[in-house]
Nucleic acid binder design. Structure first.
Lengths: 206, 206
DNA sequence: TCGTCAGTACTGGACAGTCTAGTTTCTTCG
DNA sequence: CGAAGAAACTAGACTGTCCAGTACTGACGA
């Protein structure tokens, strides 16, 4: 076996994961059959069942695998410099990245997918919330605490402030996207949401 | 027919609506069969099909019927008196009612139900958002405009301010509830969310 | 009497998960 | 290196179940 290749089994495994992710995102849990997944992965159904005991197991695995992607966002949030001059600019940039990231179609589809099945898989929704969203919020709280230490912000409860920051920015666009099929936000709108949210935040917390 | 009674047909109709609402909320669209609904409504399946051409039609009707319930919330939002002394108290009371209303289990179930099926019924999600949430937001914007006119708040864009008000309050608790099976907020937590949200709002907009 | 209803059986299709038979790839050991 | 066996794979048939929507019969109410 060449060094750059994985074994056959591992290759099939990731093919199934990818196909399942795509299919579940596009058609939901109930709307996706194991035959669909096998076909999309170019794999026999038997092989799917070899790698994942059943549909539920496959579903939870692909959902939990997506929590890796929040790492990038966590880094972003951790990296706000303590620069009084550029504070508003830096927060606005962060706000913009937040908004852009969370209004990506795949992110919204994933959100819908998990919420839709929160009744059937409650532990899965909880796990995703904690490993995904809570982690970003906690990092943001730490950042705010640091900015408070440097006298750039006046923050009694950093975690609450992080909640408020994200709420000011995300409530409306994410809600809208949840209820409509597709995002339908122009770049311009996101700019305005970001600027207005940061202004309100600074008015309350500087 | 006694004056207090509706005709037989109308009685069956509402029985089916109620049963369908209950069943869809509890088990989702796919998780609810027409037999379930008929049985729960104490009605034959044929009667269900007499009143509603098919499952989709029944679903959209019961969802759209729930938008009536926002009227009470609209009234609430419209009724903030222009009293400078009591402004914070009044807004906090409103905030609390907001939070309590939106964290009711049935409201959360309904939200999940619509979001879960936003792909299949996009026009339904959009309609519910506009007739439900947007209407409250618009009323809140009008109220804020009035408070600005009386000099109690300083608001450049009332609709944006309404967005911020609701975002400060609702983002975290509603999100949490979306991803977890059940609400799990104590009355105490809601109090704190309400007070903190209003304080941040007033710091930004007074 | 006529339309509406309950009860129930039925049709047709979808789908999770199993099974079988034959093929390909990996591994191991002479 | 090369053969032989082990493991994973493909293709597709098959079972059992569930469910939307239809059809029919006999009862019951206006």
């Amino acid at each position: 076996m060449a060094a750059s290749e994985e074994g056959r089994s591992a290759r099939k495994h990731t093919a199934i994961m990818n196909a399942a992710t795509k299919a579940f995102m596009a058609n939901g849990y109930a709307g996706t059959s194991m035959d669909d997944i096998a076909k999309l992965a170019a794999v026999s159904k038997q092989t799917v069942y070899k790698h994942f005991t059943d549909k539920e197991k496959l579903f939870t695995e692909i959902v939990l695998a997506t929590t890796d992607r929040v790492d990038a966002m966590v880094d972003l949030v951790a990296d706000i410099p303590a620069d009084a001059q550029a504070l508003e600019d830096n927060l606005t940039r962060l706000a913009h990245q937040f908004l852009t990231a969370l209004t990506q179609p795949e992110v919204l589809q994933l959100r819908r997918l998990i919420i839709a099945n929160a009744d059937t898989f409650p532990q899965l929704g909880a796990a995703w919330y904690e490993q995904g969203f809570e982690r970003i919020l906690a990092t943001l709280a730490t950042t705010f605490q640091r900015l408070d230490d440097h006298g750039l912000l006046r923050i009694a409860d950093p975690h609450l402030a992080a909640n408020h920051f994200s709420g000011l920015l995300l409530w409306i666009p994410v809600n809208k996207a949840m209820f409509h099929g597709s995002p339908q936000h122009t770049q311009d709108e996101l700019d305005r949401y970001a600027a207005a949210g940061v202004q309100a935040f600074l008015a309350a917390y500087r």
